[in-house]
Design a protein around this nucleic acid. Structure first.
Lengths: 153, 153
DNA sequence: ACTGAAATCTGACTTAC
DNA sequence: GTAAGTCAGATTTCAGT
């Protein structure tokens, strides 16, 4: 990791808050020339600090207002089983993200569905059909806050 | 929720994969006129389907390679306590996102830190200082996969 | 590494189908 | 709702500091 100067940090913050800001606007806000700003922006991508730019969709607005976290234990919890189950879960359309974790559980699966029927169908028809699955616990997500701006500590 | 036609869906997918695509490029990919594409894009924002555009940063590249999920129970788990604790957690710089959940735990906190010392300091010095905190369990995150493209089910 | 000007391209708007 | 045309403004390159 190469160090971030004040301009890089500010640019990262601006692009995390609005990834479609124009280069000219960014340059004005940072008090640098547009050409300089463009080069900084590209450098952040080249150096791997910025991985990509993504539109954020409203889950409720696309008809998936119900979120849940599903804790899963698999048996035996070796690499082959973990990798196999992860690959399976990754392909499920209900899934938003998958955490492979240490501790009591092996997976934490964040899902968004239309209603409780779809959630039940996911757990009872899709997940429990897997033979390696040893335990499932489903928690409803009442609220999910995600930080948009992430800075070095 | 108003219905999404084929163009809207395709546009959503493209912008989730690369939020900085130009209107012209999007129009070409969708085989529609740029003016039409632009109007569709704005409509998605106006209708609330697209909430924003964000640059995605590499956590390891900014010096935060260690992720954890911290399950927390608070006491008593009423609205005042839940809201107070959530507001507190939200402000911690280590935190990436906060799930308020049903079930055994009240919160699941996703954090990214520099090393295990910072993780220990977060849990032992910051979280456990809160009097409402009844229980904490920390799981290391070995891997976190996040879907970039989310579609209606 | 940053700047500033020049050429090119994009996006916003109007008009018409 | 979609397409074409126009022009202001943005992006990008490059020579210069």
């Amino acid at each position: 990791m190469t160090e971030l100067d004040a301009i890089d940090s500010a640019l990262l913050a601006l692009l995390q808050n609005d990834g479609r800001r124009t280069n000219r606007e960014l340059a004005t806000l940072l008090n640098i020339a547009p050409s300089t700003c463009l080069e900084r922006m590209r450098a952040l991508r080249r150096r791997g600090l910025i991985v990509g730019y993504h539109a954020q969709v409203d889950l409720a607005a696309i008809g998936r207002p119900l979120q849940a976290l599903i804790a899963v234990r698999v048996r035996p919890p070796n690499r082959a089983v973990i990798d196999g189950f992860r690959a399976f879960v990754e392909e499920l359309p209900e899934v938003l993200s998958v955490f492979v974790v240490s501790g009591g559980d092996d997976f934490l699966i964040h899902v968004a569905v239309k209603d409780t029927d779809q959630l039940q169908a996911l757990v009872l028809d899709k997940l429990t059909r897997r033979k390696e699955l040893a335990d499932v616990r489903t928690s409803l997500v009442y609220e999910h806050l995600r930080k948009t701006e992430i800075a070095p500590l």
